[in-house]
Amino acid sequence: MTDNDRPADPARQPPGGSRAGRGQQARFGFLPASGRRPATVRAAGDIDLANAGQFQAALDEAAAASPAVTVDLTAVTYCDSAGIRALFNAARQVRLTIQVAPAGSITETLLKVSGLDQIAAVVTLD
């Protein structure tokens, strides 16, 4: 079984499985602090080389606006070391709280293995 697909050819992409379906196109958003809600960066989908720069930019924007930033990674389906690097950079500038999906998820594993959970507060959400 050999595939020689190009990413631009969605018609031949395999269907998503129920457990580990295809990652979402990444999206990032910054919500300034408001009321009881802290300044929040929300990320969704796969974070990798292709979009780590956008992620970094969103984090920088938040860090510039607030001394404490919450990053919501609960909708992140994949994150590589470039994404982790962006979080390390942000953690050096502001007080960082990271929300992740429960134990065993990709993001939770990464935060542990990278040691990011030592310098940022990690909140596990269901």
């Binding site: 395999p14 580990a20 990652g23 990798d48 292709a50």
Partner: peptide, 17 residues
């Protein structure tokens, strides 16, 4: 293009289960 990585991962993600 870096988007090729997403395709690799998608196929692997599907294969694992």
């Amino acid at each position: 293009d870096p988007s090729c990585l997403a395709l690799l991962r998608a196929r692997l993600r599907h294969w694992l289960p």
